[in-house]
């Protein structure tokens, strides 16, 4: 291959548009946000750059820490659920007959054809106390109650006197369901990709040599697809951490995450500097997670199962 210096024009043809794009839509906005984050609001429309760190110091206020912590653990739990649900699904798709496979993949991708907002409104309809899910549970309860009455146990209220709908909206459970629902495809696809690449003969060898199904999964399958699992974890966890729409709608103001506070700084509070500092802090956290992941990945590949 030619060295780029030998063909500067071709190099420029590729480099300039992409570098320009990055500059205009990434570097410049980020620089503005950084300058805002070390500025002070002095009036409704004016911001003065004073190189203050006050906005970053405010991140240590207890309520902000509480919300950061809440975002971390909600995203953490949701990521674990995504992996636990996503892995078996990916395994099913990877081992499905070649004819069925594209259809299964299509089913995973299909929700993306609908706008996130519409899907979230659909979840509101399903998860409400008078929603579809509670409707189904009530129907099951009624059948159970009838059956109990039929066998003469109706008087004891074994399953409660009345049906009590489960509250999801405005609770952690509702937000976690929403986060998992939205991000699950992002967990399935990388795991599926790593399972596809896997040489099946390792599994056969393991089983032939006397390891059980569980042992084969734990010692062979999981370690060999760990890269896919890590990717899945990262690309579900990071967007969940900055999730705005899901807690805003499904949390009903009771389960705010950090993005909801950031949004208010740019609207009601009119505190662009503080909002910028929080946004950048979220970005730093993301970088740290990515750094840890790439560090772990490089160590893993050196140690490697080859």
């Amino acid at each position: 291959m030619e060295h780029y210096r030998q063909n500067l024009r071709a190099f420029a043809a590729f480099f300039v548009p992409s570098a320009g794009w990055l500059l205009v839509f990434f570097v410049v906005p980020l620089a503005i946000i950084f300058v805002y984050s070390v500025s002070e609001t002095i009036s409704l429309t004016e911001i003065k750059t004073t190189w203050t760190f006050e906005n970053y110091a405010r991140l240590l206020e207890p309520e902000i820490l509480t919300l950061f912590w809440r975002s971390l653990w909600l995203a953490g739990i949701s990521t674990v659920i995504c992996l636990c649900v996503g892995y078996p699904v990916a395994l099913v798709i990877a081992t499905a007959p070649a004819k069925v496979k594209p259809w299964l993949l299509l089913l995973i991708i299909l929700p993306f054809w609908t706008n996130l907002l519409i899907r979230t409104y659909a979840l509101l309809n399903i998860l409400g106390t008078r929603g579809r899910l509670n409707g189904l549970l009530e129907w099951i309860w009624t059948q159970g109650d009838r059956a109990l009455t039929f066998i003469g146990l109706g008087a004891y209220d074994l399953i409660g006197e009345d049906f009590e709908p489960i509250t999801f909206l405005g609770r952690w459970s509702g937000v976690i369901i929403g986060l998992v629902y939205v991000h699950l495809p992002f967990a399935i696809l990388p795991i599926y990709a790593s399972l596809e690449k896997l040489d099946r003969s390792y599994l056969e060898a393991s089983l032939d040599l006397g390891a059980g199904q569980w042992r084969t999964f734990r010692s062979i399958l999981l370690p060999m697809t760990m890269a896919g699992v890590m990717t899945a974890a990262i690309i579900t966890f990071i967007p969940m951490l900055g999730s705005f729409l899901t807690p805003a709608l499904l949390g009903r103001g009771q389960v705010d995450m950090i993005a909801n506070v950031i949004e208010r700084q740019f609207k009601g509070a009119n505190e662009l500097p503080f909002g910028s500092a929080m946004s950048l802090f979220l970005l730093y956290v993301t970088f740290i997670i990515l750094a840890i992941q790439s560090f772990a990945a490089s160590r893993g590949s050196r140690r490697g199962i080859k």
Binding site: T41, E61, E63, I64, T66, L67, R70, G253, Q254, D256, N260, V261, R264, Q265, G268, A269, N270, E271, F274
Partner: peptide
């Protein structure tokens, strides 16, 4: 406005 938002964030958190 900033005071209101800080109090509101404490309520929401």
């Amino acid at each position: 406005l900033a005071k209101i938002d800080a109090a509101w964030t404490r309520v929401r958190a």
